[in-house]
Amino acid sequence: MPSSLLIGLFAIALVLVLLIGLRPRLTRSREGKILAFVALFIVPAIAAWAGFSMHMDRAQSREFCLSCHVMSDFGKSLYVDDPSYLAARHFQNNRVPRDRACYTCHTDYTLFGGVKSKIRGLRHLQVQYLGTIPKPADIKLYEPYNNRECLHCHLGARRFEESSAHRRDPDLLNTVKAGRRSCLSNGCHDIVHEVGSLKDATFWKSSQ
């Protein structure tokens, strides 16, 4: 839902509820009772639901992820001018949607992945506001990155299945697909954000 529509919905909801609140006598008539039910129950429920989906949607944006200062180096790492940086390479070549880059790689591609991510987010809030904020380079994922997220896009893709590096060891693809060997293992795709070494990096300037 575009935000102008949402604002309109909230404006209508507020006008209706204020009308009833300031003129409760209206509810003495039958029409007034119906109006009150619409104004105090139906419309607020619709507005809250629309607002909730709007928030969930906005929470997928890169801007949202980077709205806490401690993440800003991860945001910068998407612009590193070096194709060995996995996140940068996906971002700069539009292999992940740019405005949702973080969410695309960092949500769990499971039924409740989005919800689980929000619950993890609550833990981030706790650390951000009630704990000690770590240095960006010291931040670790709560659980090792799951191959499932890479395979969500790459499984079955010819370039993935037939890549010579993946074919060299005949058992490699099986162990990767079974999750017994991480895509990020040493010597494989092990350079992702590397925020500890951003000082020495050069950055790509997007034309848009």
Partner: peptide, 29 residues
């Protein structure tokens, strides 16, 4: 009942206003 409806309306209105204001900032808080 009208007094209670007044109270209910104030709560709903205050809640909707907070919801509306929460869209102003793109931030977890």
């Amino acid at each position: 009942i009208e007094r209670r409806i007044k109270w209910a309306s104030s709560m709903v209105a205050a809640g909707l206003l907070i919801q509306l204001l929460s869209f102003l900032k793109l931030h977890p808080l």
